[in-house]
Simulated assay, not measured.
Amino acid sequence: MLKKSLLLLLCLLGAACQKAGEPAPVTLADDASTGPTTKVVSQPLPEMAPRDYLKTTYWPNAELDAGEAYISCDFDYVQYGDGERLESLSFFAVVDALTPCQPKGVVRLRYEGKINAGFAALVQRVAAIADRLEIPVRILDIESSGGHVEEAIRAGDSMAESRWAIWVREGSYCHSSCVLILAGGDTRSIAGDVGIHRLFRDQSKATSRAELSAELRDVSGQVRDYLMRNGADVRIADLMMTVANRRLRLLSTAELKEFGLSGSNAVQDDLDRIRLTRRCGEDFARRRDAWLRAFENECLEPGKAFEVLDQCGRSLEPRFGFPDAKCPSDNPTADRRGLPTGTAAKALLMPPLKLDAGTKSAEVVKK
């Protein structure tokens, strides 16, 4: 009797009413502004921590079942295109795709499709092989109308630990749960559209506003926690609960900056400076900050070749007391490929585009 009463209580709390073997409900933030959304396919994947991908060649089966991925070793997509299509997420397929990028130290992952478990596995596996091959620069060049919120959070947290730059290039878009991916990047360079709207549960059983709100309460809290730890404004979570799903609120250039979704990630910048100060001292960190500001003002221009940037950066070093024998590996141009490290290196990841400084309508309805 006691056992039955306990089970009934748990069911009333929503913790034990799910049928055995029934998949957990997923939360969607998928662009429905152009019509009904298509079901986002996402087969459950065995749990594997990102660091575990570095320890073994045996990876659980995973598929890109809601999008397509391409691997390029070049920044210039106008001249060189998007690279070779990645046909498989197996260990050896990813190794083969990234090996040509090892000499340049740059991999650009172009992804077009939905955010789901396959996408999360994609960014984790590309980062793992980039680590093994010592490819320091990783760029996610994305176009997505959204997908699963939980998988966007999983992918974004993974990217935050593996130092990605994210592009939404001119003509591309990042809508709905894709916006959460932006929060995970070290740098975010945006020339396309970024838009958000309300979350909803796949196969929701809600019959009232109260029930629908209860379904989304937990995931809304997860979104807020995720945004906070990645340096983005929690107001985004509020907007994702208020803008109707059939509408799309496009974020202006100013809003993207204000919400912490474009440019350098403030949390990562602070973390980098804390680590540098710990290793090399406050004076070293202060001088390096001054060098970075001079580099961005005097050297950094979109489309400049690496060798030109490197030469300009090196010419600035004596002005700020570099190279400094105290921390030779942390001197501004100490990167093994002769490129500035830290914030300056991240600034180099901006695509060769002239960003549109104009603002967009705060709310649009897709025709």
Rank of each mutant, 00 (worst) to 15 (best):
K3P: 13
S5W: 12
L7Y: 13
L10S: 10
L12Y: 12
A15V: 13
A16M: 05
A20L: 13
E22V: 14
E22K: 10
P23T: 05
L28D: 01
A32M: 11
S33T: 07
S33M: 07
G35V: 02
T38L: 15
K39P: 10
K39C: 14
V40R: 03
L45V: 05
E47V: 11
P50W: 02
R51A: 08
K55Q: 15
W59Y: 02
A62H: 04
E63M: 08
G67W: 03
Y70M: 00
I71K: 00
I71H: 05
C73G: 14
C73F: 04
D74N: 08
D76Y: 01
D76P: 00
G81W: 02
R85I: 09
F92E: 13
F92N: 15
A93K: 03
V94K: 00
V95D: 10
D96R: 12
L98W: 02
T99H: 09
T99F: 09
P100H: 01
P103F: 10
G105Q: 00
R108K: 04
Y111I: 00
G118W: 02
A120R: 08
A121K: 03
Q124V: 00
I135D: 00
R138F: 00
I139Y: 02
I139F: 00
L140C: 11
S145E: 12
E151M: 07
E151C: 08
E151K: 06
A155H: 06
D157K: 09
M159A: 07
S162M: 08
S162L: 06
A165V: 07
E170Y: 02
Y173W: 07
Y173H: 15
C174Q: 12
H175R: 09
C178H: 05
V179R: 12
L182F: 03
L182G: 01
A183L: 13
G185D: 00
D186H: 15
D186G: 10
T187Y: 14
K205D: 10
K205V: 14
A206E: 01
T207C: 01
D218C: 09
V219A: 07
R224L: 11
A237K: 07
A237N: 09
D238E: 13
L239E: 15
N245H: 11
R247D: 04
E255C: 15
E255Y: 05
F259E: 02
A266Y: 04
A266K: 15
D269S: 10
D269Q: 13
D270A: 11
L271G: 05
R273W: 06
I274D: 14
R275H: 12
R275I: 15
C280H: 14
G281H: 01
E282A: 10
D283L: 08
R286K: 03
R286Y: 13
R287Y: 02
R288M: 01
R288N: 10
R293Q: 10
F295A: 09
E298Q: 08
C299R: 05
E301F: 12
G303V: 07
K304G: 09
F306E: 12
G313F: 00
S315W: 09
S315T: 09
E317K: 04
P318H: 01
F322C: 00
T333W: 13
D335K: 11
P340Q: 06
G342P: 03
K354H: 10
G358L: 11
G358E: 06
G358A: 09
K360V: 15
S361W: 08
V364R: 14
